[in-house]
Design a protein around this nucleic acid. Structure first.
Lengths: 218, 218
DNA sequence: ATAAATATTTAGACTTGTCTAAATATTAAA
DNA sequence: TTTAATATTTAGACAAGTCTAAATATTTAT
């Protein structure tokens, strides 16, 4: 049985592998987990001993199949709990991350599956991130950012890249949510901000905002 | 913020205080937590430093008001999660204890209250134990054991003292549950076993069983 | 009331996960 | 390609919670 700390390392390495195609390095993990590179080195050795990562000195790290399966399991638990917190306990989508970080470490073979059934097998969490199924299969079809998409076409928001409370509150304030339809009216060359139309009115959003919104053409 | 271990000590001391009126001693805590008396001594010093227990060398320990409030809070979380697991996720009542032991340590001021509302403010957990309210008030009205109650009267089962899986499975096997009505038909002097009537049929139960069932006269 | 049994505490050690500071390796720049 | 900058690892230390073994206190029995 893994400790909470070991699970957090696996989860972090998994996310970093998705973002960067190369082996994940020590410094990056340290920054992400708010710890020190030396601590990371120590832990990587331990994870390598347990066959959860492939680690060679000075060459970064990569999850083994074993390690990846566990990481996906943790992500599955995290996202299901987020759905529970938002759909059943009526938390706002910007309030659930820290709680899910705790709940994802509850160890039970049956709990996740029962929770999933209770929630009616949701496919996405409140931020639009896909929920891996029981076998660990996960659909990665969120590729288009609003920032890089054609003007004057209709899109629907299917996810957020940044799910910090600050960003989600901003979206709430302009009534943008998962499922909202948006159309780009104009783009500003100077700062890459754009005017978009959504919910029958139009307003300007920053580049920082548009590049954190996943969209799908409709 | 307390560690999981500190919380477990407080919860254990609280339960032991309810059972024994005197100061709780080191050995008892050690047995309950499956650890060593010396480890308990170490922890009691730490808890005393934080003003959670009153501890004097060789004289056992007693929760402070502070410590008691926290203990009750943990018990509240534990019991609410048990209700969730049984009522919403359809676990059997003998399967929820270990899971609730994990869930009770989730730290959140709002989660417990939202969970309580979601569950419609239940008063008792699946084993008939009362759930403390938000202010920590708790009703302790489970005094009559089936073993010590009059023959030929009608009672309803309101709780179980032992909530081990083994005992609960035994109850399942004879279809006794919280809310079942029972009447003692006869008692055996030799081993204190008794024949009871419940659900339109009668059968014998051991003293070990009858002294773990809380009942109320009807 | 003293001896024997039991309970409790202390001292010192171990594990996990962390840290700082120093040593070493890799990468980038001139 | 040698130097400078950066990244990584090692060595040694620390805190939390635990342990064993030994020392001390309390309780029980005679």
């Amino acid at each position: 049985m893994l400790t909470k700390t070991e699970e957090n390392y696996l989860k972090t390495i998994y996310s970093l592998e998705l973002l960067h195609s190369k082996n994940v390095n020590t410094t990056l993990i340290a920054k992400e987990l708010k710890t020190r590179a030396s601590s990371v080195t120590d832990m990587l050795k331990k994870l390598a001993d347990k066959d959860l990562v492939n680690y060679k000195k000075y060459q970064g790290v990569k999850l083994t199949l074993n390690g990846k399966n566990i990481a996906v399991k943790i992500i599955r638990r995290h996202r299901l709990w987020e759905v529970f917190l938002v759909n059943k306990l009526h938390y706002n989508w910007d309030q659930v991350h820290e709680l899910a970080e705790q709940l994802e470490h509850i160890k039970s073979d049956t709990l996740t599956d029962k929770l999933e059934a209770f929630l009616n097998y949701p496919e996405f969490d409140p931020h639009g991130d896909p929920i891996p199924n029981k076998d660990g299969d996960i659909t990665h079809h969120k590729n288009n950012m609003l920032s890089s998409v054609a003007i004057n076409n209709n899109y629907v928001i299917i996810g957020v890249k940044d799910s910090s409370s600050a960003f989600l509150k901003l979206l709430d304030s302009v009534n943008l949510k998962i499922g909202s339809t948006v159309k780009i009216i104009s783009k500003e060359e100077f700062d890459s901000s754009m005017v978009i139309e959504s919910n029958q009115n139009s307003f300007s959003i920053s580049h920082q905002t548009s590049k954190n919104l996943y969209v799908k053409k409709i």
